[in-house]
Design a protein around this nucleic acid. Sequence first.
DNA 1: CGAGCCGTTGAGGGGATTCAAGCTCAGTGG
DNA 2: CCACTGAGCTTGAATCCCCTCAACGGCTCG
Lengths: 249, 249
Amino acid sequence: MPGEVHLMRRLPADSAAPASPRAQADCRPCEIRPLALFSVLQDHALAPLRPEIASLHAAADERLYLRGEIGSAAYTVHSGLVRFERVTESGQRRIVRLAGRGDLIGQEALLQRPYADEAVACVPTVLCRLPGGVVERMARGEPALARALMERCQLALEQAEGWIADISSGPSRRRMLKLLERLLAHADDQGRVWLPRRQEIGDMLDVTLETASRLVSQLAREGVLPQVETRRATVDVGRLAAALTVADS
Amino acid sequence: MPGEVHLMRRLPADSAAPASPRAQADCRPCEIRPLALFSVLQDHALAPLRPEIASLHAAADERLYLRGEIGSAAYTVHSGLVRFERVTESGQRRIVRLAGRGDLIGQEALLQRPYADEAVACVPTVLCRLPGGVVERMARGEPALARALMERCQLALEQAEGWIADISSGPSRRRMLKLLERLLAHADDQGRVWLPRRQEIGDMLDVTLETASRLVSQLAREGVLPQVETRRATVDVGRLAAALTVADS
DNA sequence: CGAGCCGTTGAGGGGATTCAAGCTCAGTGG
DNA sequence: CCACTGAGCTTGAATCCCCTCAACGGCTCG
C-alpha cells in the first residue's frame, strides 16, 4: 500500500525539513486542544492513546494522501493549511475545500472508506495523526467522541456547500473576494494570508490562470491587497468588505 | 417555533394531498429499510422507537425546512427527491446538492445545529421523521448507529464535493450532462428522470434560465433527451455517455 | 378572456478564454 | 561571473461563450 504515512513531495527539494513521522505527541499542553477532536476527552481518557498519536510535519505542496487510497488514519490540523483537490474526467483540476487549524481531515479512513480527495499542504503544516482503530475503539466507549466526530463531518459538509455558493457562483470578481474572505479566516498573527499561485486560484474559482492574475492585479491596484508577495499577501479588511458590498448589489 | 413539522407550501394549491404528519410508521416491511439509517438495527432494537417515527408526505416544491432553523428531527427519504438550496448575499439562489431514496437529510438537527440549507421536495416525496432525541438516545447504546450516522454525513460531503467538481466546473454543456448523469441515478422504474424548471437548472449550474433552456433544447435535438415533457424526461444513456466523452476530450 | 408562469428563440453586448509575448527571479553549469 | 533555463506572473489582442434584453407562444387558472 502506497503513500499516506511517508508523505510525498511534489516540488523540487524546496527547503523545509522532511516529515518527522514518529514523534510521539504530548497532547496535554497542546494549545489547540480546545479546538481539536479530542477536546471532549478528559486527560485520563486521552492518556492511554497518546503513544499512538504522532506529530507530522508537511512542507508546502506536500501531498498528505491521494484520492482513492484506503488510509488508516485521520489527521487533525495543528497549524498550517490544507487544500482538497479533485481531477475531473476532462483532466481539469479543481480545489473543493480548505481545512485549517483545528480541522479534522481524512475522516473517511475512520470508516474504512477511500479518501474522497487529494489533500495537499498549502504552507508548512503540522498534523496530528489519529489512527483509525484507536479512534473507533475510543468512540465506542465515549459517546461524546462519536458526537464530536459527526460534528466535524458536518462542519466539513457546510464548508463544501458554502464553497459551492460562494466560490463557485457568480462573476469571477465576486468569487475572488469571497475566496479572500475565507483565506482571511486562516491568516497568521500578523494578518497575512496565504496567496495561492495563480493557477491554484484558477483551480479554486474555475477560471484560467490569466484571469486569476488579472483579478489579483486589480485588487492590488484598488488597495484591497496592499501588499502582494509570492505566496503571501495582506488584506485590507475594510476595503474587502466594501468591495463585496458593491459586488453583491 | 415555526415550520418544520407542518410543511410549508410554496406553490399555489397544486394537487397532491396535504402532509399527513402523524401517521405512525411500520418499519418492518419497509422496502427501503436495507438502505436507510436504521438498517443497522435489529427488529427488537427498532421496535421501541417505532411509535416516534412518523411518515410524512410532501408535495412537489414544498419546503421541508429553512436554512437557519433549529430543527428537532432529521429525515430519511423514503421515496422522491429533495434539493438543498442556498441564497447568496447577492440574492442569487443556488442549489448545492440533491438527496434521494435512502438518503438522510437534516442531520444537523441531531447535533442541535441550525439547518445549513433549505430543503425542498423536487417531486412528491415521502419521508420518515426521526426525532433528534430518539436518535441520540439510540446512538449511545448502539455504536453501529453512531457509525451509520457518520457514514451518511460522509456520503453527503462526497456528494457536495462532487457537485463542485462536476456541476460547477467547466463549460455549461458539460455541467448539464453531468447533471443529467446525477438525475439518472434517481430515475423512476421506467427510466424517466425529474427534469427541473429551467430556472432551477440555472440555479444548479450557475447559468441563466435562457442558457438552461438552450441546453435542454439542444440535447433534445441531439437525441440525448428523446422525450422532454414538463418536469420529466427520458435520457438516452448511450448518447449521454458519448456526449460526455466528447465534452471531456 | 386576460393574467401570469413557463419555456423558447433571436440579436447584441460583455466578460472570460485563448493565444501570444515579455518580464522577474532562482537555480544551474559553463 | 554570467549566460542559460524554466517556473511563475503579467499584460495585450482577438475570439467565443454566456448574459442581457426582448419578443413571442403555450398553458393554466381565476
